[in-house]
Amino acid sequence: MAFAPSKSAKHRKREKGELMLNSMMDMMTIILLFLLKTMGSSGALLRPSPYVELPKAMRDKEPQKGLCILITEQGIFEDMERNPRMLVDTQELTDADNVVLPNLETFLNDQKEFTKRLGKPFKGEITIQCGKEVTYDWLLKVINTCGQTEYATLDFVVLKATTS
């Protein structure tokens, strides 16, 4: 006599191979909220130049994008997204006779004239990304040059220090 076919085997349903996405969703949501919180409008306005290692300081004034120059150990550059244009080379910077940097002075005067031609008010503000290893004598020459060309407000970009 043949055995009756097994009912349990016949009606056994195959388990579905679904992924459990709930835990991953939780994780993703946390990451998303964290990123949304850390994202600020200023981050999009002014980015630290990859060519400069900025110093740290305990300041909290939000950076603004304006006329921006870079001071590095290789010279002074016009701040551009890619391939910044050299304005002053190291030879001009190390020359002890240069209290004011002629090439930077020309550039700043051109920028000032350009602003006036556009009909915008000239505020005399300049944003400087200065490398932390740049020496004080170079910095003073830049400050002197900015003063000569009526750029009276100098804003140095720094990284916010966390400890007080």
Binding site: L35, T38, M39, G40, S42, G43, A44, L46, P48, L54, A57, R59, D60, K61, E62, P63, Q64, T127, I143, G147, A152, T153, L154, D155, F156, V157, V158, L159, K160
Partner: peptide
């Protein structure tokens, strides 16, 4: 890509 992982600030210097 747009997150500011390093916070920047301005050190205002007046002559």
């Amino acid at each position: 890509s747009v997150a500011k992982l390093t916070e920047m600030a301005l050190l205002e210097y007046l002559p």
